[in-house]
Simulated scan of single mutants.
Amino acid sequence: MPVTFKSAVDRYVRANKLASNTREEYQTTLRKWRAWGGGVPIERLERRTIREFLDWVYDRAVADNGSNPGRTANKAREQLRAVVSWAWEHDLIDTLPRFPKPVPQRDVAGRHYLTKAEINALYFATYRLRRPRLWREPAPVGRYWRAALVVFFNYGFDAGTVWGSCSFHEPILWRHVIWDREAPDRNVKQHSHWGWLYYRRVKTSKAFYRPMNRVVHAHLRSLLPETVEPDAPVFLGGGTRPNDRFRKLCELAGVPPKADIETGLAKPWVLKDLRKTCATYHDENLPESSIEILGHSVGGITYRHYADRAPLAFKAISTLPQPSAFLSLVRGFDGQCPCCRRPFLDAS
């Protein structure tokens, strides 16, 4: 029985448990395929047919006054290729068709990650954060934000993983922090001198045990209350809208806005950009390690099911060079720059 593009998309989306926004993007490509008149089964796809479809997507984007029609066509190409490759891996089709090259697209110059100097400035600025209303914790709110910056930089967490701002989020609790050397997961053979951290991704609900390095260990220890309740959240001070507080922190740190990739206009930084920052520095330190650190889906049955990726994540987290401000607490100079010993309020 011929495999239609619609049935392949439906099975691909269900099998990979994609996020709602990603599923909608695939449905958009499917609607374009129908509007173009794509009735060709995917096992009979040829390079010429794929090129005709992508040319139609490009011309339609131009007719609709799209700001970047080349990127629109390349997005449809990536999604079509992902579905067809998945169908080939699962023996729904016998051969992979040849795909045409991507069409030229406009790439707007812009940096979408924070430099280490800017991260240092954000760390300095946490000492100037105002006490939230009804704040009753013995530790200042800036201490929680310093620890949050550290875990964002090292693990690329989602904001919901840290603060659990929505009801369906599973935030990090104190029972998720393991101080033992041995990993709770029996499949992980490595031993971490600084302990382990358990968390679950917001989008995919995948669970991970990650080693703590010296910097993460010191900052989580600084948050440890006198009486630990296992089901109490580790991080506080995010509020219902942590992105608003992060923008305020950027203002205090003097971090300029970023450039939008589509329009080139200035846009404020959001907490998701810390996830991109994590990926940038992990790949710079250990190429391709960000795929495992961030919990992204990977292609290829062999890589997904047989490759042992735990040592890669262990080495990446253990060897990641840290911003200089993160080392202050490790060296016993809380509130002082570890290089010049100036108070952070002066250094900022």
Rank of each mutant, 00 (worst) to 15 (best):
Y127S: 13
G239Y: 01
K206A: 14
V255Y: 04
R181P: 07
R60Q: 02
K248H: 14
N16M: 04
D94E: 09
R221D: 12
W194N: 15
P132E: 10
K258H: 01
V234G: 15
V216G: 03
D283S: 05
W88K: 13
K101H: 13
N187Q: 13
P338Q: 07
A313G: 13
T302C: 01
C250Y: 02
D244C: 08
K267I: 12
D94C: 03
Q27K: 07
Y58T: 02
A279Y: 01
A218S: 14
Y26F: 05
R44E: 04
G332T: 05
C339M: 10
D10Q: 10
D308N: 13
P257D: 00
Y127T: 14
Q336I: 05
R34G: 01
W56V: 02
D308I: 11
A87E: 06
G332I: 06
V3L: 15
D185N: 03
W196P: 02
A266C: 03
G335R: 01
N68G: 02
P230E: 00
D180F: 02
P138A: 12
R48Y: 02
A183S: 08
N285S: 12
D10E: 12
A313N: 09
M212S: 04
A259D: 08
G195S: 01
I178V: 11
I178Y: 07
P184R: 03
T49R: 09
P102R: 05
A259S: 08
G264S: 04
V215N: 08
T72A: 01
V270W: 10
T227Q: 15
P256M: 01
T280L: 11
A19D: 11
P2M: 09
T28D: 11
R128S: 13
S348Y: 07
H305C: 03
S348L: 14
W163P: 02
A35C: 05
H90E: 12
G335L: 04
L18C: 10
L329Y: 03
K206W: 07
